[in-house]
Design a protein around this nucleic acid. Structure first.
Lengths: 350, 350
DNA sequence: GTGAAAGCGCTAACAT
DNA sequence: ATGTTAGCGCTTTCAC
């Protein structure tokens, strides 16, 4: 299609006086080529600016290659569902280059099921793997196996500082907490804020909210050193208790009017908020779950900080595909996604 | 690569008792096929779930197809430059499917140069065209020609309500003004705001700021009916005048502390703002130009509303490519991009 | 070590 | 109106 595309292995075979077979061998670093021939071929390739035609290559090759995406199974409306469109787009992209994308799901609260999913993926002999490292230890064991087999992997959401991941796609977690505090306080002198926390949060060791809380605390400490941060614990498995806990807390602390929550479940407190419209709470949460968006629309939640989980997965699959097909190493290894600020007036178009 | 991929035209030729040639003919709606054969082939295609192998197709086809992108030539740091990465990504996507993307630039203040660019594009006999309809009349004439030749076109940035565009990718312009007002006033009683406007803005008839201003005015009217909106006019071609005008205005109107601007050039007023840090103006502008971002970082500008021009172009090129290669009509015709709210704390990761 | 040749699934030109 | 066939550029077997 291009000028550059017009040079074929046939041309370079003719130029070198060798055959297409030998040219192919050096192109793929296969063995059985003399040093001399190798050098000759390489030179002509460079001189002529040869670029392989991947369609011809794909057509002639009959191997089915698959990228395994390992992620929590989830119900409608939950966080991981937001990844779906990105995985689908990634699938399409990869498919265009002859690679299939397959998902392997597990129960995000069950380490064994995570391991099982990893093993299933491994059994398919994938050309690459995308995963959020939900369970630290199991992930380490898994990526070790991958390394043994030379299978590249890409992290999404959070990353593990192991050696050898190809790329990472996620939000700058610490900064997201910092941003959250800045939106919550909005340059207005602030003496007390409430942070709603989940009682026993998932014990998978890569909980992003810890880092996020740090960012939040740092912003407050830097800008409002005298501000007190209240921690209020609720249990999502006992929704009937939540209202009581909140009522109690805000009755005892009537001066608190700013509320933040670091996981994706700010919607849990909307029933409470709805019963106190007069208080005009300023509320900031994370992630564009349907329930959160509806709280935003009704004015119960002031702002949401969203992180495009779909882009994370798309980016991951794309990077992996580029690596597998073209051998392209991602130019940026740690890819931080934008933090999107949603209010009731721009959420509709998000 | 898939189960589904394994069915080839050979299979369907055998099944129908016809030849590959005839199958190819019906596949591409080429003439010279009897009704009976056509129906027979179609049935078997459906029954077997045949999907063409685009690599084989691309390999066997030798036509170079091009998508023309017609847009203003621009200097570094200007609005249209923000489209670049999107065009590049689109180019890559299209290239993977055997289509080249070529740009045709013009002077955004010169209608003749716009027409010339359109004609150049037409001369290439493009398979599709992407353009912002900068000059209304010329665009209408141009898309008429396109329609005569059955060349699909996609609008970006703004659209014309002509019949026959394949898709549109842009921001919801009216709503962006509405959002701007909501951020500027931030639920705080507001009596006066200043809107900085460009004196003789580009006379191309598709100025998005008109619509945006409407949204802004409506929000103010609905939420703060007594609020007065001051219009301050500056001329970007006489930067030396700007400061004087602003000084003069804000001296006469000391109670005005909220400033908005509806085009991408909020950076023009930063010199003024920098000389009055004590005033703590709340300033909202549009678009993530480098100069605007630096004003955001330094705290001179409070918020920017950005519109992802790159995504607009990418979406446009992708939609066009899908249409050209696969005959896919976009599922959504008018694609509204998100309005991103940038503050100094999330801008870095945008 | 290297070459020859048979495809991969499709297109397009040429026959019939 | 339909069939035949020679490629497209590359991979892969098999032979030397």
């Amino acid at each position: 299609m291009d000028k550059t595309q017009k040079i074929t292995i046939k041309d370079i075979a003719r130029q070198t006086g060798l055959s297409k077979g030998t040219v192919d061998r050096v192109l793929h670093n296969r063995e059985g080529v003399s040093k001399k021939s190798y050098a000759k071929v390489m030179k002509v390739i460079k001189d002529l600016g040869y670029e392989p035609n991947i369609y011809a290559s794909l057509l002639a090759k009959h191997t089915e290659r698959v990228i395994a995406v390992i992620l929590p199974r989830c119900k409608s409306g939950e966080f991981w569902e937001l990844s779906d469109p990105g995985i689908e787009r990634g699938k399409e992209f990869a498919h265009n280059l002859g690679i299939n994308v397959r998902r392997f799901n597990y129960d995000q609260y069950d380490e064994n099921s995570f391991r099982r999913a990893c093993n299933e993926a491994l059994a398919m002999d994938p050309a690459g793997v995308v995963l959020p490292p939900m369970f630290r230890n199991e992930t380490m064991i898994f990526v070790d196996k991958l390394r043994d087999r030379d299978i590249p992997h890409v992290y999404v959401d959070t990353k593990l500082e192991t050696n050898g991941y190809l790329a990472y796609f996620g939000m700058p977690i610490y900064q997201s907490g910092y941003l959250c505090a800045s939106i919550l306080t909005d340059d207005t002198p602030t003496n007390e804020v409430a942070v709603i926390r989940i009682q026993r949060d998932k014990h998978g060791q890569s909980d992003p909210t810890i880092n996020r809380r740090e960012g939040f605390n740092d912003y407050i400490a830097e800008h409002f050193p005298n501000c007190r941060i209240h921690n209020v614990f609720i249990n999502p498995n006992r929704p009937e208790e939540i209202d009581g806990i909140l009522e109690e807390f805000f009755r005892s602390n009537p001066r608190v009017s700013q509320i933040a929550m670091f996981n994706s479940r700010i919607y849990l407190i909307t029933p409470f908020l709805e019963r106190h419209p007069e208080k005009k709470y300023r509320v900031v949460g994370f992630d564009n779950l349907a329930a959160n968006l509806s709280a935003l629309r009704s004015g119960m939640v002031t702002s949401l900080i969203a992180q495009r989980p779909d882009e994370q997965f798309y980016g991951a699959i794309k990077a992996l595909t580029d690596f597998i097909v073209f051998g392209k190493v991602p130019s940026i290894r740690d890819n931080f996604m934008p933090m999107d600020i949603l209010t009731r007036y721009n959420a509709e178009y998000y």
